[in-house]
Amino acid sequence: MNLEKFKVRGFIVEPYFQLYQNLDDPKAMSGELLTRLENGDSAYEVISQLTIVEHLELLEWLIHNSNQLMKNFGLHCSMNIDNNIVIEPRTRDEFLRISEMSERTTTFEFTETHAMPGAADANKLFRRLRDQGHSCALDDFGTGLNGMTLLTDYDFDIVKVDRALTIDIETRPEKLKVISLLNEMISALNKSHVVEGVETKEVYDLLITAGFRVFQGYLLDKPIPISELNVSQLLKEQR
């Protein structure tokens, strides 16, 4: 398997890694394993058109990359899962077979913008992933109304707070108050969080005052092609 390139439908997808900043554990070394097209553009359009079989192949490739990152750099990876993979029981089992190959402490992200299986089925799936040593994250939380039941009924370990919820908090103090309360509630439910899309220092500082501790964004660390990753660079990135 060529870890540096994944060929699908005439496109070449390459792996990137974006480190999270964790104020409670500066040596946490975890982040998101992302995909980009060969020219650096987003692979979103291409990936969203894949069939379930192609998604599973992509997942297997991502997991091999993730295992490699763990082995070489001690990095914990979080990766996106297309919700369609887990809708049907049959492909859900196939997904669990592949996730089993992954190093422990991998995080699988499910987006709130696509349909999920019912809460009972999803929670059973999450339980099996947890038994394998993995975690489940709710991605893009706050972008759609779906997110509400996804947070109340689905047993995610991690909530990835979308930029939609943190946008213009610098001009709207009341929104900051709500975000702060939301953070407390997420903690009270024993869930972790990652705030996505942190792009300015002002917003970053406000989010810290609101109680958030784990961040992902261009301001802190940019996605780096995996081929260009090296330990000293990552250590330097850690503040």
Binding site: G147, M148, T152, V178, L181, M185
Partner: peptide
Amino acid sequence: LLREAIPVVLSVATTTSMST
């Protein structure tokens, strides 16, 4: 109850004038 309250908090995040 806490889980039930979260959507309420969230819906307010998009409202104009409020207290929570």
